[in-house]
Design a protein around this nucleic acid. Structure first.
Lengths: 337, 337
DNA sequence: TTGAAAGCGCTAACAA
DNA sequence: TTGTTAGCGCTTTCAA
């Protein structure tokens, strides 16, 4: 194994100098730097992560945490995980995926005490999230993908649901739709995306009110069948609905199915916009979307957390990431407009 | 921070003794053990993972690796990740999710050189997987979820596709189906589950031959639309098909859709069995399944790898995990039988 | 701009 | 059965 001492010896400098070349923490004579870099190159040196973690008190590892309660991580969550992993790597950090076995928040604290993990990135953040409270009060760094009702000084990145609601409602209104429906993700506490579901529903409702449009919201579990039932329920509650906003990919599949069965083909007799991550191009017709930009959100959240790790006293970054509307073939002018 | 020295002092023993109480590596007088455990309890001691990794030369971290090429981790893959994470934790290991940015196998070697990771668990293993060759030749411990064509002495756990094929084909044959179709995952190199797709297709084909049943295999991308097209293609190629085996969850959704559109309602005029992980209870009708037991496979693979880490010379564990058939409502007697 | 050296907290070999 | 101690490879302070 090649160690820092080997490099220092070959370069004819001290190990401290080698360290500083690596971290750039103090100015080095260009000539010295060259010698050191050459020596590292020549020896095929790789720094030992454990030694530097021990000596420096920083593991350069953060953990992504999913709630343990509903064991539902769906495909789209993975996009966040992957993006976060890569964003962390670009900053020289590693990511571990943590899924609390029980609701054992103490386990999380242990990870930090063990020096394994420097901080946590929480996914599926609830409006009022006990994990945030617990970790904050234990003095453990936390970042959010999503946000709580009152995020205070916690670094986070989330979709800008207000903006998405405007984007989508205006798109439908522009096509002449006057009665909007929404197929939401489940609201109930502990469920995937709960905070997001609440905020998005609020945003849609408010936007519709401002535009003087009808608005009916139903929720659906993340299954195809639930989606069918939810659409039926929606159209029974508000038969005049011609434009539907979905925040539930699996339910969307069921709704498309059901729309056809009910003689409301998409887009001729019912317009549909998907606002959750999914596979909009795999359906028939392809779905018009305005989805949360998962990669960008995850990246921003990771950077916010890592910056916060470096400067705990500074005001943490809090970002709402806007989306764009992509028109495909599931929206059309309202019937008879 | 509470260190081992604090515990030793309070317990009135040496730090070495504390270590041994923790690892159980040598026999300790029960009385001494008690004192030590009490002291740890009293002080709220948590061992420092970095220090023990550095001193012991073992990080107790393994990495799960997905191929970088097709960036397709789907929902069902997550089941493996979660199960592996928990199995590792039960053995005192942590798991990091690694997704190579480029096809940079060197990056993997770096992780080991840096002492961060002790070994790799590879997912989506191809029939001939260069990752395995590379890591093995670099002397790095590898375990597989899945298997290569010739796994040699690599620890692995995989679904017993021969057994699953028999289970499913016999189920359909028992219902009077004489012409079987298969909706496979994509075969082509580098794609998700490729090795598995090849082996499962082979097993189904062979079993059908033995039972003197017709057998047509089509493959489909992992999208709903591709599934619709694949079913149509299948029924055009073999119009007499009455029983379909699917190894592709997303495509199954499309196929169910298409079956109805073609006037072949499930299960009355077409039986369908799902053999990949998915959500069989969310469709209408609910799907009869014989799916790879993801949790058990991942757990077995993790244990095989960890055992291998401990005893590199020993013969590694290699397990084929059988499945069970769960009858729901997507299979019925063949029409006219 | 650089070097020397004292740890970081733990493991494990050796001694008792 | 238990204690002592020399590292593990790196960071960082203090001096030069």
């Amino acid at each position: 194994m090649v160690t820092r001492a080997d490099v220092a010896r070959l370069a004819g400098v001290s190990t401290g100098t080698v360290s500083h070349v690596l971290t750039g923490a103090r100015s080095i004579r260009p000539e010295t730097r060259r010698k050191v870099l050459d020596a590292m190159e020549q020896l095929g040196y790789t720094p030992n992560a454990m030694a530097s973690a021990l000596a420096g008190g920083r593991s350069r590892i953060i953990a992504i945490v999913f709630p343990s309660q509903p064991r539902t991580i769906v495909g789209s969550d993975l996009e966040y995980v992957l993006a976060a992993t890569e964003a962390a790597r670009r900053r020289g950090y590693h990511v571990v995926l943590w899924t609390s076995g029980a609701d054992d928040l103490n386990e999380l604290r242990q990870l930090v005490r063990a020096g394994l993990v420097q901080g946590f990135l929480l996914m599926q953040v609830a409006m009022s999230d006990e994990r945030v409270r617990f970790l904050r009060s234990a003095g453990i760094p936390v970042g959010l993908i999503g946000r709580t009702r009152a995020p205070g000084h916690v670094p986070f990145a989330d979709a800008d649901f207000e903006q998405i609601a405007r984007l989508v409602v205006d798109h439908l209104a522009g096509l002449g739709h006057r009665t909007i429906g929404m197929l939401n993700a489940p609201y109930e506490r502990g469920t995937r995306g709960i905070g997001a579901a609440v905020r998005f529903a609020d945003a849609v409702r408010r936007t519709c009110e401002e535009r003087k449009l009808g608005c009916t919201i139903v929720e659906s579990q993340h299954t195809v069948r639930a989606g069918r039932e939810a659409l039926r329920e929606l159209l029974e509650a508000a038969p005049g609905t011609t434009g539907v906003i979905s925040y539930n990919w699996e339910a969307t599949l069921g709704a498309m199915h059901e729309a056809r069965a009910l003689g409301r083909p998409i887009p001729e007799r019912l317009s549909l916009v998907l606002c959750s991550n999914g596979e909009p191009e795999s359906t028939d017709p392809e779905l018009t979307t305005a989805t949360p930009p998962a990669t960008e959100i995850a990246t921003a959240a990771v950077e916010a957390l890592i910056d916060h790790l470096a400067a705990p006293e500074a005001e943490p970054a809090q970002r709402l990431v806007p989306s764009v509307l992509v028109e495909r073939h599931s929206t059309a002018p309202a019937p008879g407009s």
